[in-house]
């Protein structure tokens, strides 16, 4: 393999990895705060993608950053509403956690069908937001891939700043670590929980716009991608923010390089086998390794 191909595959793997990372972040944040494995996360991503695309239909010259913002707002509003209208009520009624997780699967199927009703069952193409190619030391790279990788990094850095420097972010962290203590310190638990879902949904919405612009928007796009992102979150260590970011990018790279060097027809199987192997060695995922090293 020559340098050009190596760079192309690496950038491709990182770009897809960023999408997994953003989704994995949502899984991890929600699990840490509420214990819920939010299986509808992939569909929140899909609807973010659809809304970003619809914004482009209305305003074809919309700046890519604004399209991303539309996706984030849509994803955030949707996930926040799901928490406020359904999950919160279920928790208050004392529904067991396992049943709430089952409800998230129900939401996933419902949202998929709602999207099919609204946007049809055929894949939809994002208009080209970029043209030409970017040259990196003589090697030409698709601007789509660079854009996805760059926005992924920016959003993840922004999330870190939000969680560690702002009051609502700190409140979310506090609720995740010890809800009772946080409440005693004056944190509004149910508002903070809704905010966690909304931020997780916004991450998913951003991932949807990225994935849509790389490939297609499709009512079923959230299913397998959501599953892989969940695997990435597990790889990073469920509940760990840093682990989710790293796990996503690592999973994207493993998948792409596995397909290049081992077998492309069975790429999904390779990714999953590697996950099982890694968990056998590192039961707590990458986050566990990090804690052990410290």
């Amino acid at each position: 393999m020559n340098m050009t191909a190596l760079l192309e595959v690496t950038v491709g793997g990182v770009a897809v990895g960023c999408v997994y990372s953003l989704l994995a972040l949502g899984y991890s944040m929600i699990i840490r705060a509420s214990g819920i494995i939010h299986f509808a996360q992939g569909e929140v991503m899909m609807l973010g993608s659809m809304c970003g695309l619809s914004a482009l239909w209305v305003a074809p010259s919309l700046h890519p950053a604004l399209v991303l913002l539309v996706g984030m707002l849509a994803g955030g509003a949707l996930a926040g509403a799901m928490e406020l209208l359904v999950y919160r009520t279920l928790r208050r009624r004392g529904v067991p956690l396992v049943s709430i997780i089952t409800a998230t699967v129900g939401f996933s199927i419902f949202l998929m069908n709602a999207a099919r009703l609204g946007w049809g069952s055929e894949p939809l193409r994002y208009p080209d937001m970029f043209r030409g190619a970017v040259e990196v030391s003589g090697i030409r790279i698709s601007p789509q891939l660079l854009w996805v990788a760059a926005s992924g990094f920016v959003i993840m850095v922004a999330l870190q700043i939000f969680l560690s420097k702002t009051r609502p972010g700190l409140a979310m962290q506090a609720v995740a670590q010890d809800p009772d203590a946080a409440q005693l310190m004056g944190v509004n638990l149910s508002r903070s929980m809704a905010a966690t879902f909304a931020v997780a949904g916004a991450m998913a919405g951003a991932a949807g716009v990225m994935l849509g612009s790389l490939f297609f928007s499709f009512f079923e796009m959230g299913f397998i991608t959501g599953l892989k992102a969940f695997v990435a979150a597990t790889l990073g260590g469920l509940g760990s923010i840093g682990g989710a970011m790293l796990g996503g990018i690592l999973f994207g790279l493993i998948e792409t390089f596995g397909a290049v060097f081992i077998s492309s027809a069975y790429k999904d199987a390779i990714g999953m086998m590697l996950l099982i192997a890694i968990l056998l060695v590192l039961p707590q995922g990458l986050a566990g390794l990090w804690r052990r090293l410290r």
Partner: peptide, 20 residues
């Protein structure tokens, strides 16, 4: 010769190998 599973969306790996 490269194959992929139905429903795949990312063909970077296959195309890299083919172009090689």
């Amino acid at each position: 010769e490269e194959r992929y599973a139905r429903g795949d969306i990312d063909f970077t790996a296959q195309l890299t190998r083919l172009r090689g």
